[in-house]
Design a protein around this nucleic acid. Structure first.
Lengths: 348, 348
DNA sequence: CGCGTCATTGAGAGCGCTCCCTTTTCGAAT
DNA sequence: ATTCGAAAAGGGAGCGCTCTCAATGACGCG
């Protein structure tokens, strides 16, 4: 372990002394320098430099009640789902945006009920300025535990009254699904099956709805439940094949599911796309491009979603602080649904 | 955005008043309750409960100089690498361990030099108690920027004097590589090739060394440089095949690389494992199990590595705080190298 | 030339908590 | 009973910073 430096870090006071000014002036300079005359600014800057002064965030937070930190809550009980790069991409987007606003990212991973209580306590404890919450399942108790903490959700939350002021960022799951299925229809496929995602998540439900929008009177036998994993895709594909040997297309709720499905198809001697066309969802590289055959899929910009979530939250925080001053002119940020695009590759 | 609660959160003072005791007593109870008589403890507990009191971390840190927070620095310039679940698993391990010690995880993602400066400043700023640093490349300037912050590295850092007190957690890359290659030799393979990882990382170098340990006088033509990605694996595999058409086995620096290599092998009509046996490294599920054929690989327990890193760091922090009192009796934690195991599947 | 006005700067009061140190309490020993 | 001493509880300083407010000085105008 690298050694611990023992000499105390310089304080505002020290900088002030060195620059021959008052604490208040140093504070002003450090926080933007408005209303301080140029020569003084320069002197203070130099003192800061020489002493290697870094503000003590704890002391600052104590008085400002801001933390310049945002919690990212990933509530994913299943370790397996962690194997998909989804979160990594979102995190990257979030991180970039937060960094640009000098905010820190506090990561809260939960699995299981006990963790929820912990996270609730943490958020309620006012340690962070806001929260970005992911992967809510329909019955998740977390939202109830979040009081008074500005929050933006990743993906449409599932509670009944879809609004309740909850702000979220999502992609157009339903529209994307429609486009995927229409594409299959356009290819002349008639027996189009769907492997759903985990139906306790709204994204899975929305994609299923999109599928049904197009296949209005689809045989229920053509719908099998998956769970967003390759394993789930395999299982569902087997069921489907057993129930409807004559299916000629599959729309899978995500790419991982599609990969699983394609494996079973190959196993059973069906050629993709000749015998069965396959469309996925997410466009998760490198899975899709390097699948065999490369996967036709619905692209959503995951990193952008993360960035947007952070941006929305930060904007909301600004509003909160300026609201009292400006009379709350700026409207509360509202949810954003990003468009999707169909990416045609070889599988359909 | 969820609404902002406006009523101020209760302070120690408020709890004290409610319980009819002094601030100091409440503080004692909140921090463990030693030296407070039972009836009082109970009264205070109840007051805390009723008021929904949560300690203000900023105020606490201000005086204790502890933050109960650890930074996790992931220095990965290449977005692509983010597509592998490696970090997600490590993070999970780290998160579990930190949670168990009531510490928070501050995630610092960097790409590019500018970010390094930012991270250096942040760490030097004493916002966290320690740091866990990943994916150091050989020329990374970050270590130089970390002064006085207890740090544990993920993977052996690459600076020349392998020690300098740096604590790290790694798996036995060299030993694992040896085992993999010996396995191939045991299979009767003679023209064994190696696709390396990104050679600016010690794990890649160590695995290459392990390869050479066994293949003492391997033809340099049988070694091609990859970068831990499927794309890199493909490229390297093509080179290898062009240079040495008679190779009968490949040891890939990681599973992703192996997947890429296998794709090229299939493309070129070589059967795995009949014509060319393939061994990977990491045992990254679900890649390995679901590869076609399922991949023989060297398993390392990634999540455990993360957990261990956190544990080492926290232990070091304890030591730091108790050192002055106990005369620094407890030894500094030292690096840990975890064993690997060969997992035999179908590819070799 | 004096006074009002505005822009700068300084002084000081806390933010909520921990921890040292003093005061009180209580039980045991004389 | 009285004293003593340890344990328990309270008082108060102060962590490093921001922010309000007062003091200072520069400057323009009557």
């Amino acid at each position: 372990m690298s050694e611990q430096s023992t000499e105390p870090r310089p304080t505002l006071e020290a900088v002030a002394a060195r620059a021959g000014v008052s604490r208040a002036t140093v504070s002003r300079v450090v926080n933007g320098g408005d209303g301080v005359r140029e020569p003084l600014v320069e002197r203070v800057r130099q003192a800061v430099e020489e002493l290697g002064y870094v503000p003590n965030q704890a002391a600052r937070s104590l008085v400002t009640r801001r933390h310049d930190a945002v919690a990212v809550v990933i509530a994913e009980p299943e370790t397996k789902v962690f194997a998909d790069p989804f979160f990594a991409l979102q995190l990257r987007g979030i991180s970039k945006e937060l960094t640009a606003h000098d905010s820190q990212l506090v990561l809260l991973l939960t699995e299981g009920r006990a963790d929820h209580a912990r996270v609730g306590r943490y958020l309620a404890g006012g340690h962070v300025d806001g929260a970005l919450v992911f992967s809510l399942h329909l019955d998740d108790p977390l939202p109830g535990l979040i009081h008074g903490v500005p929050t933006v959700y990743g993906g449409r939350p599932g509670w009944i009254d879809g609004s309740r002021g909850a702000v979220y960022v999502d992609c157009d799951n339903r529209g994307g699904a429609r486009e995927a299925v229409r594409h299959l229809v356009g290819l002349g496929r008639r027996n189009i099956a769907h492997i759903t995602g985990a139906l306790d998540q709204t994204s899975a439900v929305d994609r299923l709805d999109g599928f049904r929008d197009v296949m209005v009177d689809a045989d229920p036998k053509l719908i099998a439940e998956g769970d967003f994993t390759p394993g789930g895709g395999e299982r569902a594909m087997r069921e489907l094949l057993d129930r409807c040997p004559d299916l000629d297309a599959v729309f899978a709720a995500n790419d991982l599911t599609a990969v699983g499905a394609m494996r079973v198809l190959r196993e059973r001697g069906r050629r993709v796309p000749e015998d069965v066309a396959v469309v996925g969802f997410d466009d998760m590289l490198p899975f899709t491009e390097q699948a065999d055959p490369p996967l036709t899929t619905v692209r959503q910009d995951i990193e952008e979603m993360g960035r947007l979530m952070a941006r929305l939250l930060l904007r909301g925080l600004d509003r909160t602080s300026s609201a009292s001053a400006s009379g709350g002119l700026a409207g509360a940020p509202s949810s954003v649904v990003l468009p999707t695009t169909l990416v045609r590759r070889a599988s359909a």
